[in-house]
Nucleic acid binder design. Sequence first.
DNA 1: ATGAAAGCGCTAACAC
DNA 2: GTGTTAGCGCTTTCAT
Lengths: 338, 338
Amino acid sequence: MTITRPITILDVARAARVSYSTVSRVVNNKDNIVPEKRARVLEAIERLGYVPNMQARKLAGGRAQVVGLVVHDLWSSYQVQILRGIDEEIAAAEYDLMLYTSHGRAATESVHVATLTQGLAEGLLLLLPRGLSAYIDELTKRQFPYVLIDHQGVPGSAPAVSATNRSGAYAATRHLLDLGHQRIGFITGKLEVDAARERLDGYRAALTDHGSRVDPELIVKGDFLRPRALEAAHQLLELPDRPSAVFASNDVSALAVLEVARECNLRVPDDMSLVGFDDIPEAAHVHPALTTVRQPLEDMGRVAARALLSIMREPNRPPERVELPTELIVRGSTCART
Amino acid sequence: MTITRPITILDVARAARVSYSTVSRVVNNKDNIVPEKRARVLEAIERLGYVPNMQARKLAGGRAQVVGLVVHDLWSSYQVQILRGIDEEIAAAEYDLMLYTSHGRAATESVHVATLTQGLAEGLLLLLPRGLSAYIDELTKRQFPYVLIDHQGVPGSAPAVSATNRSGAYAATRHLLDLGHQRIGFITGKLEVDAARERLDGYRAALTDHGSRVDPELIVKGDFLRPRALEAAHQLLELPDRPSAVFASNDVSALAVLEVARECNLRVPDDMSLVGFDDIPEAAHVHPALTTVRQPLEDMGRVAARALLSIMREPNRPPERVELPTELIVRGSTCART
DNA sequence: ATGAAAGCGCTAACAC
DNA sequence: GTGTTAGCGCTTTCAT
């Protein structure tokens, strides 16, 4: 049982009876090479099954065709859908993806960023809810290509893609108002996250524009996660003057509200309307199906990836911020106030 | 605006007033180094924010702490849940993950495997439904650590983790039989995939053991995907002697059946019982909630990652095949035949 | 115990 | 056009 030694560029050179660097040139589509030699090299590569060694290539100053993705975690469909979009684009461009999850440990996170930027990666996609200003500066200074996803928090002008959180929340609130609801409960997201604040803003703005009062009692703090949302739902539904509708800052929270409503023997939408945000796959499947604001998550990933690739191609293009439109999806969880 | 040059081991050496290799030794916890020097080096590393360059390290024969994952695609929760488990374990072990999606292009796939094995990766996780015998041989020959996930197709003894597909399908079928169903429709998965065949086997075995006839008319070919499942569902539900229950080889297919049933004005479970396989998140949320066979997907990922890590530690340990237990989750989509 | 030096596989000047 | 050669940042002998 022979241990197959990895084929190097040297093996190819020998087999094709050309020099070392000629092979390199062929592999990298450089210069003009005598067609006959190029053919020999190509044949040898094919026959030997040569695959270039990325590390060596990158180390020597070449391109590794690798893009890094640092993501907080993979827990919800939210991240995963974005990941899908990224993956598609990156693969289509024949780049490879290094995936790093930080699990919220800031230390880990910056090590990851460093590893990636000083390592294989030629570009960076950052899907982190907050607090990345530390390395953004560094990246900008080093002119290292990167794109932020769903994060507008950096003051300067960092390339970023996100969704129209504010207007999405505005539309959802407006929808409820149009249905005749007056007391509309709101469960916030994690307010350190920009998107969460924007959604709150949208909610407030819709009320104000409609001439309704923003009742602080109806705004309950959440964090985008289920446990906190369950508490928030209880708090809202046990109010003496119970709201006739609830707008949760994401679907995961809205699903929690749905559960609590069921516990309280409240029928949705008859006794209470409910709106979520995100349109995760579950939203369409629960009963009643959730009215929600769709974020084009996969597209966000796709657009971010494409933006990164073009920044990598032309390092000097001015940073762009893209906001993809959200869309109100009306389903069965909302109806006119009776 | 100074362009920050990446900090190399040489910078650290200068700052700590020691040699090049001493720093390397400290970084790799080697030998005995005079504590005082070690401290100086550590301090310099900290102060300069030095992060080792993985490529260089790997190239020079060191460890890169990278594990590669080749996955067919990320379309369903199936892959994603496994990915989560993998990610958790890999991150906990302080390894990094390179993610490759092959999107079914076999050529891409083998290039990916080659890139990974000749590159950074020290181990490989393969989540591919089929046809990987080509490189399995190669990997085995080279003694390259790898673990297959949900794939038993390789004749030799390849390290693999999967779930008890057969007994899961057996249990589900048994459940339906116990409820008094006699004509039980079955929608297969992609039969090139081992798991699909095992599920079919389990279905057949349960019928046989129960003394029922396996009616070929009731077995319809699917491929784990929605479009084909919709057709299959129609075919089954339009049978002159309509089955009183349907068992689909995965939840995605079962969900499709649910839709078709609704179209046909069949109530589930009253007019027809329905069972799926996988227990993807949507299964619990549809109405009625889906009775299904839970695959411990996240655990499968976790176990596979752990197995890989231990193979990487002791290359000579005999390959292990782990089968994780599936579990029948009875929900609202099944009831006794009326 | 620690410094010097030889590569790892490759790219990119630099020669010819 | 194509071969030669100097590194890229690091690990690992081999001296000392």
